[in-house]
Computed example of a mutant assay.
Amino acid sequence: MERVGERIRNARESLGWGVSQLAKTMGVSRQTLHKWESGEIVSPRPDQLFKLARKLNRDPEWLITGKEPPRASSEEQHRLLTHFARLDPALRQSILTLICSLPPRE
């Protein structure tokens, strides 16, 4: 089974980025990124994982587990889920609270 570090490396390479480019974008050293990818550091901190997911255009769940999120059934849902996944976790929670408080469509 593919590890977190392998998924980070594969996503980085699929974007055509080198270690230096992603490390700079993340605000970490090349050595830290190498340790994540090699598994020397088993997994980045949660805040770093969410930032990695945004930078790599991947779902945080995929980075952590390797499981792809459910697919949207329409283009509108796909766009909504894509943008939602890129938000800061606290903002996502606020949006979920707001949405859950709305009355259902009649």
Rank of each mutant, 00 (worst) to 15 (best):
I64A: 08
T97S: 13
I95E: 09
A53F: 05
P70T: 05
R71H: 05
G27L: 04
F84T: 04
L63T: 00
R3F: 10
R79M: 15
I95F: 06
A11N: 02
D59Q: 03
L80H: 03
D88V: 02
N57R: 13
L49P: 06
P103N: 03
I8A: 02
W17Y: 12
R86P: 00
E2Q: 04
T82G: 02
L87S: 09
A85V: 05
K55C: 12
S20Y: 07
G16V: 10
S94R: 15
A72R: 09
Q48K: 11
L98M: 12
P103K: 04
A53V: 02
D59T: 07
T97I: 12
V19C: 04
D47A: 11
P89A: 07
M1A: 09
I95S: 14
G18H: 07
R54Y: 11
V4M: 14
L33Q: 03
L56P: 02
A53G: 09
P70M: 10
D59Y: 12
S20A: 14
P70C: 04
R9D: 10
E37C: 01
I64G: 03
S20H: 15
H78C: 05
R92M: 06
S20W: 06
L91A: 06
A72W: 03
T82W: 12
D47Q: 13
R7P: 05
S101L: 01
D47C: 10
S29E: 08
I99M: 08
P46K: 12
S73M: 04
E68A: 10
S74I: 13
L52E: 03
Q21R: 14
K35Y: 14
L87Q: 13
W17C: 01
P89V: 00
S94Q: 14
S14D: 06
E2N: 06
K67M: 07
N10R: 09
I99A: 15
W62S: 03
W17S: 00
R30A: 02
H83D: 08
